[in-house]
Design a protein around this nucleic acid. Sequence first.
DNA 1: ATCCTGACCCAAG
DNA 2: GCTTGGGCCAGGA
Length: 126
Amino acid sequence: MSTKRAVERTRNLTRRLLKARPSEQRDAAMRKVILQIPRGEVATYSQVAAAAGYPFYHRQVVQLLRKSGDALPWQRVVGAGGVIRLKREMAHDQRLRLEMEGVRFRGKRIAMEDHQHVFRTWKIRS
DNA sequence: ATCCTGACCCAAG
DNA sequence: GCTTGGGCCAGGA
């Protein structure tokens, strides 16, 4: 369809104009935000992205978490509504880690009323 | 240039 | 509740 072409066109144009904006800076901002999440609390991918100053970049948060390994408290970043998005073993692993930190679940999802971390962006510093 | 793929999100049905 | 389509984004093939 044409919308797909339009998207592709816009994307390539953007790439050319921004000359591949340093993902370094983006990653650093996101890392900083993720490290703000305390034990026993969680935040969603999109919340992390927004708090880092990159709304709509929730997918990049995933990429960052994947390549960062255990350098970041990855278990504290979850899907919207408090749902664990990993597959198979990893999903189970994340749940265990969270429960170990005191995070409680209601069925399949995290009890967000008790564990949702609210970013105070004005306090995020390097 | 195009296609595909995610640890995504959300409004609809 | 659950499924689906459309919207998002960069990186790799």
